[in-house]
Each structure stands twice: as structure tokens, then as C-alpha cells.
């Protein structure tokens, strides 16, 4: 649309300015916008695109990295029982851990939200501690609690005449332990996200629901959950990705044992790629979940976007 009497052209440079066309191009908003994006593009290229492309390239080489083998490494993995054990354990670990983190975070967020705002800060701070401590360090503490010789848990169980539990040496208990520690570390993230979501729900909606005749449970189902749906979806997506990629807890606590039963993709990739010296195979392991997670992320984010448009 043109407005009469108003020129939308840029002012012509003074004839004395040399390189007028370049000057004009340089001053264009779109040129400036692209130039301002350069630092971010450079960072993404260096830190995301290059490593990702390089790991795809690596996963298609032979062990000595001298020959291109296509999907050979992947086909090799599919034939190995240990790999399918890792797939099974990774899915079990991620699903159980994320479900419990979400549940505990949701309940804790509600509990913290009921505390008067004056005293809420210290509780929020305390409950964030497990998430703030570097997991490798806190897992060492947990290892000490589980470790058979000094296990504080077993000492406690013995006090109640319950037989000692082989926390890290039995398949079931080892899986239980790594999931427990992951839940302990990750639940505060859900707590803080859900707490922020809860606080953003207008109080008037609950008042309107009270007058409409809703019980506390009905308010939760018909007001709280639908209003938190986007945050719940994004938090769970983020947590699934991070939990699948978890390394430090398993590495410190069980190192994948007993009998490879607690390995996740990242710890198994480390075992195969670094400790066994087969970097291309390790790269293939670490890339295995990428397509599934990418599709999951796409679906969840599309739903979130659709809801954001309509609500």
C-alpha cells in the first residue's frame, strides 16, 4: 500500500558518499537482521550442526575409521543382544523416571503453592537443591548410601530386622536405584516448572469453578490440568530427551552393571566408543534414538503450538 505524499524509498545517499549502492544494501533492515544473527548461527554451527553431522559421518565408518560402511554399524548393533538390552533399559529408565518426576513435581508444586508466599521462598530453595548440585557429585553420595559395606539404607533396614538389599548388584535393585537417583535429581525441575504454571492460572477461574459447583478434584481436572497442558507437555518432552541422554548417574552408580542391565545409550556408547575404542560404533549407538525423539518432539511441539493459537 502506498500513502500519497509519503515516499517509502530510502533517502538517496549524498553524491559525495562513495559506494552508494553498497551503503544502501548495508543499511537495509533485512541485512542488519541477518548480520545480527551471525553470532548465533556461528555458535549453532560450531556446537550443534558440526558435531551432529560429524557423528553421523563417524557412525558410517569402520572401526579404524578408514572405510565408509554405510549403515553397517547399525546393522551390526541390531544383531547384538546387549544392544537390545540397552534399548529396553533406556526406554524403561526414561519412562518410569519421567512419570515419577512428573507426578512428584506436580504434587510438590501444589504443596508449595499452598504455602503463604512469605515462607514459600525458602521451601522452593530447599526443594531445588537436588537439581542444583552437580549430579556426578550427588550420585557419589547416593553410591555411598547404596554401597554394600557402608550402606546406610541397609543399616536402617537391619534396624527393623529386614534383610540387606543388594542395591547395586542385583538387576532389579540396580535398575531401581538408578531410576530413584534420577527421579531425586530431576523432580525439582518439574516442581519449579509446574509451580510457575500454577501461579499463572488466574484465581478467578477457580472462583468461577467454585460457583459453578466444582469440587477440588473437578477443579484439578477441569481447570488446573487443561491450563497447565502446554507446560506439562513441554516439560515431559524436555525431560524425556534429557533422561534418555543421561550419563553421569549410571556411570557413577553402576557403570552399566550388573551384566549390562543398567546401561543407557550414552553409557553404552561410552563403553563401546571410548573404552573399547570403536568410536564409529559408539556414534551409531548414540544416534539410535535421534529419529524417535525428533518425531516425538515434532508431534508434541505441534500440539503445543495448536493449543497456544486457540487458547
Amino acid at each position: 500500500m502506498t500513502v500519497s505524499g509519503v515516499s517509502r524509498d530510502f533517502p538517496k545517499p549524498h553524491p559525495s558518499i562513495r559506494g552508494g549502492a553498497f551503503y544502501l544494501w548495508f543499511r537495509r533492515r533485512s541485512t542488519i537482521a541477518v548480520m545480527m544473527c551471525f553470532p548465533l548461527l556461528a555458535l549453532i554451527t560450531c556446537l550443534v550442526a558440526y558435531p551432529f553431522a560429524y557423528s553421523i559421518y563417524l557412525s558410517m565408518l569402520n572401526k579404524a575409521e578408514t572405510a565408509f560402511v554405510g549403515f553397517g554399524n547399525f546393522l551390526f548393533l541390531f544383531k547384538r543382544e546387549t544392544f537390545w538390552l540397552v534399548v529396553q533399559q533406556s526406554i524403561l529408565f526414561a519412562l518410569v523416571a519421567v512419570i515419577f518426576k512428573a507426578l512428584i513435581g506436580f504434587i510438590a508444586a501444589h504443596a508449595v503453592n499452598t504455602i503463604p508466599s512469605k515462607g514459600q521462598r525458602k521451601w522452593r530453595g530447599m526443594m531445588l537443591v537436588p537439581w542444583v548440585i552437580p549430579p556426578a557429585l550427588s550420585t557419589l553420595g547416593w553410591w555411598w548410601l547404596f554401597e554394600p559395606t557402608y550402606s546406610a539404607f541397609n543399616w536402617l533396614l537391619e534396624e527393623f530386622a529386614v534383610p540387606a538389599v543388594p542395591w547395586l548388584s542385583d538387576v532389579f535393585w540396580a535398575r531401581f536405584s538408578v531410576i530413584l537417583v534420577n527421579v531425586w535429581v530431576g523432580a525439582p525441575f518439574f516442581l519449579i516448572m509446574y509451580l510457575a504454571a500454577l501461579k499463572s492460572i488466574p484465581e478467578e477461574l477457580y472462583e468461577a469453578a467454585s460457583i459453578d459447583g466444582a469440587s477440588a478434584w473437578q477443579k484439578l481436572v477441569h481447570v488446573t490440568l487443561p491450563m497447565m497442558r502446554n507446560i506439562i507437555a513441554i516439560t515431559i518432552l524436555f525431560s524425556i530427551i534429557v533422561t534418555f541422554a543421561n550419563f553421569d548417574i549410571v556411570r557413577v552408580l553402576t557403570q552399566g552393571g550388573p551384566r549390562n542391565s543398567t546401561h543407557l545409550f550414552s553409557t553404552y556408547a561410552f563403553r563401546v566408543g571410548i573404552e573399547s575404542g570403536d568410536i564409529p560404533l559408539g556414534a551409531a549407538v548414540s544416534l539410535f534414538m535421534f529419529p524417535a525423539l525428533a518425531i516425538l518432539a515434532f508431534v508434541i511441539l505441534r500440539n503445543v503450538r495448536q493449543r497456544t493459537v486457540s487458547i
Binding site: 478467578e204 477461574l205 468461577a208 487443561p226
Partner: peptide
Amino acid sequence: AMVFQNYALYPH
């Protein structure tokens, strides 16, 4: 029944 200042309609 109550009508609120900010309507308090359920957005979802």
C-alpha cells in the same frame, strides 16, 4: 451465579 470483572471464562 456470578459474573466477574475479567469474565473468568475458561480459555480451553
